[in-house]
Nucleic acid binder design. Structure first.
Lengths: 199, 199
DNA sequence: ATAATATTGTACTAAATAGTTCAATATTAT
DNA sequence: ATAATATTGAACTATTTAGTACAATATTAT
């Protein structure tokens, strides 16, 4: 691999960002390389200079999500240290789908659902990225437990897993309905349930 | 539209069934018309004799799911008249994903996630099919309520919506993990929560 | 039997797709 | 300044895609 100049980094990042947006909006297979080029104002030689293939850019998009989440620079706070923080985590996702008129679900989940069967690496990448959220929520519940503020019967990892599953389903149903209510309703119930383990 | 002979109906049904299976396994866009033809042992002239386009067969597949659900002939009992029936509804879905080694999520949800953005008709079809389940679950909770066996605070439609959302998320996470545990765990929590409204 | 209709096989088309080639132009380091 | 390297433009290729044309063959109704 050759080095990238500052200019190269900017071009590369623009391509990744454009691909990320198109994958979220239309799906990976519904997005052609040519569409990414046109929308990012780049040419084919630029694309294949920075990426080996379409598969490669899918994985780079997932790497982007991973980095954003790990660096805490994304629009959604996943460092959760209070019940309010957990509510914000859910509500930020509701804000997210509102931005796109309830026409999109989770960008990472969408990629996973489309490609997990045909590409084992992508499946694992998707899993790893979603695990970041699950791990953060797990740590929140573990903290509560250590502080004696969570019922003994509660399993942090299990509750965190349930949190993410209900959130994925919530976003999906709102996309199908093009309406915020299914997601809001699901999140409300999930939070009520989770809080029932508080003490 | 011309009439179909018995032979025609069989061929047509075989194409729909093959498409249904491939869409579930690999996704709609990942499935070419030619793949459907090869897997169903039919030719192009047959396909376009019975279907107007690829979009058309996607909608026929959704119509198939709708009919199966409404006729009660599917592998999953959606006529629910007891808590055990609701548990079976969830557990049947867990059995379903086990059949495919946890490599697939909901076939209807997958189509919706892939095509809702680009095809409004498909989005509405998907919504309508999933609404059949939601409606059946709603009726179960309404029945309980009328019998005085559900807390007054419980809203049947809202709980039914939550049921389907958590199920969709459950199946999705197990697909990403290629493992039954996330779905089993999510379903366990969802059922616990739902039962908390029993009285 | 024959006419009408339904089904199917073969060959084709036009567009889109991912990816390549290669030379031209910037940029950076010495 | 110049050599090395990074970036980009333009034209191209091979394959796959959805969909068409049309004649040949079955099947059914009269």
């Amino acid at each position: 691999m050759q080095e990238l100049s500052e200019k190269g980094n900017i071009t590369r990042a623009r391509i990744v960002e454009t691909a990320r947006e198109l994958f979220h909006k239309n799906g990976v297979r519904a997005t052609s390389v040519d569409q990414i080029l046109e929308a990012s104002g780049t040419g084919k030689s630029q694309f294949y200079h920075y990426f080996r293939s379409k598969e490669d850019i899918v994985r780079e998009v997932l790497r982007f999500y991973k980095e954003v989440m790990l660096s805490g620079q994304g629009p959604i706070r996943i460092e959760i240290d209070s019940w309010e923080g957990l509510e914000n985590f859910f509500n930020d996702h509701l804000k997210g789908i509102r931005m796109f008129n309830y026409e999109r679900a989770c960008p990472i989940g969408s990629i996973g659902n489309e490609l997990a069967a045909e590409n084992e690496d992508v499946r694992q990448d998707v899993n790893a990225v979603l695990d970041i959220s699950i791990q953060k929520i797990t740590e929140f519940f573990e903290g509560l437990k250590k502080a004696g503020k969570l019922k003994k019967s509660a399993d942090p990892k299990s509750l965190a897993n349930f949190s993410l599953a209900s959130l994925q389903g919530a976003l999906l149903l709102s996309k199908f309905n093009k309406d915020p209510k299914p997601a809001e309703n699901t999140v409300k119930h999930a939070l009520t349930y989770l809080k029932s383990f508080s003490k």
